[in-house]
Amino acid sequence: MSRVEGAYHKLIVWILMVMLLLPLVATLIYALVSEWGATILPSGFTLKWMISLWSDPRFLIALWHSLLICFGTLVLSLVLILPLMFVIAYYFPKLDALMNILILLPFSVPPVVSSVGLMSLYSSGPLVLTGTPWILIGCYFTIALPFIYRAISNNMQAINLRDLMDAAHLLGASTWKAALLVVLPNLRKGGMIAVLLSFSFLIGEFVFANLLAGSRYETLQVYLFNMRNGSGHFTSALVISYFVVVLGFTWVANVLNKEKS
């Protein structure tokens, strides 16, 4: 590689970095200054927006709601999808093609349409969920499904499931024990990717949250929407805080993942 080429590669990387980081950095600065209106440079740094955000009980409740919904969805998804995928991969491999089409459905139907459908589905028996946070978990499950299915299915194909199960059976393990002791631990990597992907996607979800629960059960994004007429510095602080929360969880998850392997 020549020097010119190297410089060119570096330039591209730098431009990309700047493009990705600039909005974030600008938002961060905006959240940390007292006034930045008619002047080129901001008039002074302050933490008052951050402090007022983190001392707003409404924000803390919205954050709690968002985390609860996200983790609720992830737990529900994993509990339902992992056994399902094992059954498909081990007993009915032909169904995988069908599943690959089914998991695209949540994307093919616009949220505005599907939320109407979901509301009418859940507003009468046997399961009345409309107006409760549970409807969001049910709905988010369908959105998270494609991410989780794809990530775990790739992982499942990589581990040679059939031979591992056969080997475990011959060594005296029941199918349950084999699935739990041999297959499940080897899906950790795919499972982690699935969880992180879905988490960062779900915590930023607005359309469904607003249509299905709205102000009755304010999540972070709905709270942000409701605050849109307030100070821009305040909403900037909110965006940065939200970003830091996602970053924090991702980092913790990565550390936990590394420690085990």
Binding site: D163, L170, N186
Partner: peptide, 13 residues
Amino acid sequence: IGMVFQSYALFPN
């Protein structure tokens, strides 16, 4: 009965 597979089938975890 014990069996050895072509793919080894060792438990990676």
